[in-house]
Amino acid sequence: MKILVCISNVPDTTTKVKLTDDNKQIDNAGVQWIINPWDELALTRAIELKEDSSNTIDEVCVVNVGLNQSDATLRKALAIGADKAIRIDAEPLDAYFVAGQIAAYVKENPFDIVLSGIESSDYNGSSVGGMLSEFMDCPAISSMTKLDVENENIIIHRAIPGGKQILELKPPFIGIVQKGITNEPRIPAMRGIMMARKKPLEVVAAVELDSLSHIVEFELPKAKASCQMIAADQLEELVHLLKSEAKVL
């Protein structure tokens, strides 16, 4: 079996987001790029499955739609243990475009399992995996918290409100993973870093495809205001503010 893990290249989650003067773009100066944390969990699980000889995963590949600034991130994926990286050479315009490009690649180069993270800590939200499954016309399992392979069967746990479902299915399918799929993202070992030098990082041309949306402008949240005091007999107001202003209830 072959597994493909979709990797998005995102600013380090501790990065302070800054905008260019016209607010049209994120200011990338000094930004450290990392593998989107959920994708890193997916990759770690894929490699664990491959290392476990009781199942028959022969290859773990990673794919990214992006320009060459993604290469360092892809090489890190190789250092962590992926066998091959594919970069589809195009600006990732929107989730539809990204998913469409990956789908075009997978149609030519089939995989049994395609994994993506439930969220991308930049723009694309949780959309790429779901779109991909529609492009590929195959099932997608969202909120996946456990993934095991038993012979030709795939056993999956999926988080649902108030509990979990245990599912069984046969490949091919798209899995959208969340926390829990593995304990910790894997740290690349020296040997892996060294071997990454020799592993293939294939750059393929993008296919013709229109995006459906684009970002016109960014805005930063307002600076944290000082504490808003609410009288003890106006607690309805507090609940209202938590819901509609802070949006945390």
């Binding site: 360092a72 250092a79 690349p188 070992a189 020296m190 870093i193």
Partner: peptide, 8 residues
């Protein structure tokens, strides 16, 4: 590669 080692 040096950055990768530092991060690891």
């Amino acid at each position: 590669e040096q950055e990768m080692i530092r991060d690891a």
